[in-house]
Amino acid sequence: MKEPKSLVRELITPEGIDLRLVLADGGERLSAFLLDIVFILLALVGLTLVTGGLALLFSFRSAEVMGVIWILGFFALRNFYFIAFELTPRAATPGKRIVGIRVATRDGSPLTPNAIFARNAMRELEIFLPLLFMIAKADGIDAWTGIVGMIWCAVFVFFPLFNRDRLRIGDLVGGTWVVVAPKRVLSPELGAPAARPVFSETALDAYGIKELNILEDVLRRQDAETMRAVAMRIRKKTGFDLPMPEAEFLSAYYIALRGRLETRLLFGRRRRDKYEKA
């Protein structure tokens, strides 16, 4: 509802209900990825310190074993960090969990390991190859080759920004996409006003659903300053002049307005906002 329409996708469950999935936007994807990179680097530093420290401790008699552990650990972090976390029931890496997004298949079918493998193997192309290119361009490649290579890499790196479903190459190949999956909390019910003044018809016809939702936010947030301002606006617009404390007035008006709009809704009239005819 807050989200732009262009990112909402239909997912009809076998029970016939549309879950209205919301795709993660570029910013969410990027911040999740950067968080993951930070975690990987931290793990790498930890791995290096532990193996290096142990090798030192045994005065390098076990240096080979530590070398093997380090090199395999590095390989595992680089290639299996994403795969291992996306195989868990939450289908999200720590970075994605923090941002509140997860991987899902585009057709709503179960997420299989091979889809996850394919989607992450493509990172070679999207991230490591461009990185390699940037590091290696110093040795003897002429400027034009460098520029063409950069453009070629940029196509893959910026691919998600140029398609409707925000797919990166890996998503395309794995048949997946990344959706918003926040854990929401059910807030306490707003409606048991202390007093129930009677509002006139015109007072209740002043607003629509959009304004009701804004009022709901204001009431849940409980910010005295905002409540005072909103209460003033509503009093002025509806011409309601019984003396009442702001909080009480607002929750009474909220319930009355919601009751009216919901009754209308039951009769099939959804009044989107105050500009629509009552």
Binding site: M1, L11, T13, P14, I17, L19, R20, L21, P89, A91, R102, A104, G108, S109, P110, L111, T112, V179, A181, P182, K183, R184, V185, L186, S187, E189, L190, I209, L212, N213, E216, R220, R258, L261, E262, L265, L266
Partner: peptide
């Protein structure tokens, strides 16, 4: 979705249903 205008409630149910969907119809 058809009777309530409590947005917090609808958002909560959407998120809960989606989480449950991925679990119930996920890999078994």
């Amino acid at each position: 979705r058809t009777i309530s205008l409590d947005r917090n409630l609808v958002d909560y149910l959407e998120s809960l249903s989606t989480r449950a969907y991925f679990f119930v119809y996920g890999t078994r």
